[in-house]
Amino acid sequence: MRIDLKGRTALVTGSARGIGAAIAAGPARAGARVAVNGRSTERVQDSVCALEREVPGADVVPVAADVTTEAGAEQVAQALPRMDILVNNLGVFGSADPLRITADEWRRYFEVNVLAAVRLTRLFLPGMAECGWGRVQYIAGDSAIVTPAEMIHYGMSKTALLAVGRGFAKQAAGTGVTVNSVIAGPTHTGGMKDFVHGPVDRGLPWDEAQRAFMREHRPQSLLQRLIEPEEIACMIVCLSSEHASATTGGALRVDGGYVDAILP
């Protein structure tokens, strides 16, 4: 399968680091013009430079804006009047005692993980539909389906994101725009490294530590290791292409078999 995204413009929110940075590199390799987004101008520019080194000749645009606010979302829309591929990757995660976490923290998770994606979808979907082509994607997580007791607030936001994706797919019906969610499993990021080393012996080499974490704390994973961000990016690129024109309204899993179900 040859994927060519030349002539397309893609925005990946929260792409100045972590999974988002890896996702941004995927469309760039396939020839798309890619907008890298984050709140810090300096961090975004650093990420743009890193992506240009990783993908020589890539067409990369820095868009520093806080998309968790109305003003930030509007700023992005003004900077990128035409959008073909919207990847709503921005999100926060962390564990907390479900009986002690504050209402303000619940609201923050919903604002960042759900409403930021809703705002951008509402801004860009009409233009995509008018052009007769577009791709909208939401990065969910296994916690949307298998909610950990210590991350109820996070799981709630990702479950809501699946509903958002399905709903906007119906809104886009017949327009040539596809809308899908990608359910990512436990993924190898800087933040996840800290998460792994919490319950696992810090003296272990990283490869042993991550496998021990998966074996002891995520035993339902069939992959039995953390997923690499590039593996998630591959699904994003495929969904962004012409090859996925009949895939919409779905929740596609890149979870290493973590979710014990045939369907989400």
Rank of each mutant, 00 (worst) to 15 (best):
I23S: 05
A24G: 07
A25W: 10
G26T: 05
G26W: 06
G26Y: 05
P27M: 12
P27I: 03
P27Y: 14
A28W: 08
A28S: 10
A28L: 11
R29M: 07
R29Q: 13
A30F: 11
A30I: 11
G31T: 01
R33A: 05
V34E: 04
V34I: 07
A35P: 01
V36I: 14
N37I: 00
G38R: 02
G38M: 04
R39P: 02
T41K: 15
T41S: 07
T41L: 09
E42K: 12
E42R: 12
E42P: 00
R43E: 11
R43M: 05
R43I: 10
R43C: 02
V44Y: 10
Q45L: 14
Q45N: 15
D46I: 00
S47I: 01
S47M: 01
V48E: 05
V48R: 10
C49P: 00
C49W: 11
A50W: 13
A50D: 08
L51N: 05
E52M: 15
E52D: 05
R53H: 14
R53P: 01
R53S: 14
R53I: 02
V55Y: 12
P56D: 09
P56T: 13
G57V: 08
A58S: 09
A58T: 09
D59R: 15
D59Q: 14
D59F: 11
D59K: 14
V61Q: 10
V61L: 15
P62T: 04
P62H: 10
P62W: 01
P62E: 07
V63E: 01
A64K: 07
A64V: 04
A64C: 09
A65P: 07
A65E: 00
